[in-house]
Amino acid sequence: MLKGLGGLGDMTKMMKAAKDMQDKMQKMQADLETVTVTGESGGGLVRATATAKGELTALEIDPSIFVPSEKEVVEDLILAAIKDAQKRAQDKMQSEMSRITQELGLPADMKLPF
């Protein structure tokens, strides 16, 4: 198609690949807003739900842990559940980023700007 124009054909391929990567990254970012992960603590007594982007969307607490003398334990369980949800969200995002880079033929350990 662009015979005789030297590296211009390669540049066109690179631009198309960059555009494809940008489109896939935008789709992945939108998808991560709808994917949820749930972290828990205390054997499921406290559950925190977050989007794969890390936004906390729900918190469930088993009423059996509401004992006034156990206030600090409840607070610790809540924090642990939130941290677990955030870690799962981060892991999910990393997994999706790896999948995208592999689909694009990039090295699996390549760090993209997200």
Results as ranks from 00 to 15, higher is better:
residue 1 M to W: 09
residue 5 L to Q: 11
residue 6 G to W: 08
residue 12 T to D: 09
residue 15 M to D: 06
residue 16 K to N: 09
residue 16 K to A: 11
residue 16 K to C: 06
residue 16 K to Y: 12
residue 17 A to D: 10
residue 18 A to Y: 10
residue 19 K to M: 06
residue 19 K to F: 03
residue 20 D to L: 10
residue 20 D to H: 04
residue 21 M to L: 15
residue 25 M to T: 14
residue 27 K to I: 13
residue 30 A to E: 12
residue 32 L to Y: 03
residue 35 V to H: 00
residue 35 V to R: 00
residue 36 T to V: 00
residue 37 V to I: 05
residue 44 G to C: 04
residue 44 G to T: 04
residue 49 T to L: 02
residue 53 K to I: 07
residue 56 L to I: 13
residue 57 T to P: 03
residue 58 A to V: 08
residue 59 L to G: 04
residue 61 I to P: 04
residue 62 D to N: 13
residue 64 S to T: 12
residue 65 I to R: 08
residue 66 F to E: 14
residue 67 V to E: 12
residue 68 P to D: 05
residue 69 S to C: 11
residue 71 K to W: 06
residue 73 V to M: 15
residue 74 V to F: 03
residue 76 D to Y: 08
residue 80 A to E: 11
residue 83 K to A: 12
residue 84 D to P: 00
residue 84 D to G: 01
residue 94 Q to W: 03
residue 94 Q to I: 04
residue 97 M to R: 14
residue 97 M to C: 13
residue 98 S to V: 15
residue 100 I to N: 10
residue 102 Q to W: 03
residue 104 L to D: 06
residue 105 G to L: 02
residue 105 G to H: 02
residue 106 L to W: 03
residue 106 L to S: 05
residue 107 P to A: 02
residue 109 D to H: 13
residue 111 K to D: 02
residue 114 F to D: 05
